[in-house]
Amino acid sequence: MFNRRVIAWQGKTAATVPTSSCWSYENEAVCKDMAAPPEVIGEQKPKPLQVSPGAVLTVTFSPPPTDESLTVAQWIGTKRIEQLLENGNQWKVPEQPGWYLFDVRGQWSQGDAGHAFVIEVRQNGQQRPL
């Protein structure tokens, strides 16, 4: 599978949790069917990436997914809302302070995979212990 995925903002990276994937190894396909990202995040409870309102996040995979296969979606309850990507791998987070759940998915020649993560949008200077 791919070696590295990074969701970043100003040098900080988000903790990600794997979601459903299918991957081919030689002549064998391995699929992992996971719960929806809200449930996976609820179980794993990764630390949120703290960002400013309207921050632009960048997602990179190494190796990169096939052209135009990368998607980013925000989850509101059970509703998945695909985000508009700029430059193929960047999107703007909400302006309103709060916690937000996202997932990223991509396709490679060997298969597809996804990762969920949480961000916390905070006003500059607003400090809260984690």
Rank of each mutant, 00 (worst) to 15 (best):
I76W: 05
T66R: 15
R80L: 05
G106W: 01
T66M: 15
Q83N: 05
W75C: 12
K79M: 13
W108P: 03
T78L: 06
L84W: 04
Q83M: 15
I81A: 15
I81M: 08
G125A: 12
T66S: 14
G114D: 05
A29I: 13
S109G: 06
Q83D: 03
F102D: 03
Q107V: 00
N124S: 05
P94L: 11
G11T: 08
A15I: 06
A14K: 02
Q83F: 09
V6D: 14
I76N: 15
Q74F: 10
Y25V: 03
V118L: 11
N124L: 03
E120A: 05
S21V: 01
C22S: 11
V6S: 15
C22K: 02
R105C: 01
P94A: 05
M1W: 04
S24Y: 09
F61S: 08
T78V: 12
K45H: 08
S20N: 08
Q123R: 06
S24L: 11
Q123D: 11
N89C: 12
R4Q: 14
H115D: 05
R5D: 10
R5Y: 06
K79Q: 12
D103Q: 06
V72Y: 07
V72W: 01
Q50P: 03
W108N: 03
H115T: 00
E68N: 14
G98Q: 08
K79C: 04
E95K: 01
T71N: 08
T71P: 05
S21P: 02
V6G: 10
E86S: 12
A15L: 05
A73D: 11
G106V: 09
A15M: 09
P38S: 12
V6L: 11
G98A: 09
Q96K: 13
P97F: 07
Q110Y: 00
S21R: 12
V17T: 15
P37V: 01
T78K: 06
N87E: 14
Q96W: 00
P64W: 00
P129D: 14
W108S: 02
A73W: 03
R128M: 09
W75L: 15
P18N: 04
A8R: 05
C22T: 11
E43C: 02
P129F: 07
R80S: 11
L84E: 15
L70Y: 07
V118G: 00
A35R: 06
I76V: 15
A36L: 07
Q123P: 01
F117I: 02
W91N: 07
V51F: 03
L49S: 04
L84R: 09
G11W: 10
D103A: 11
W108C: 05
K79R: 11
Y100L: 06
C22Q: 00
E68I: 01
I7A: 02
S69M: 14
N89A: 13
G125W: 00
T16V: 04
S52V: 13
R80W: 00
I119T: 02
Q74H: 13
P48W: 04
Q83I: 10
F102S: 04
G106Y: 07
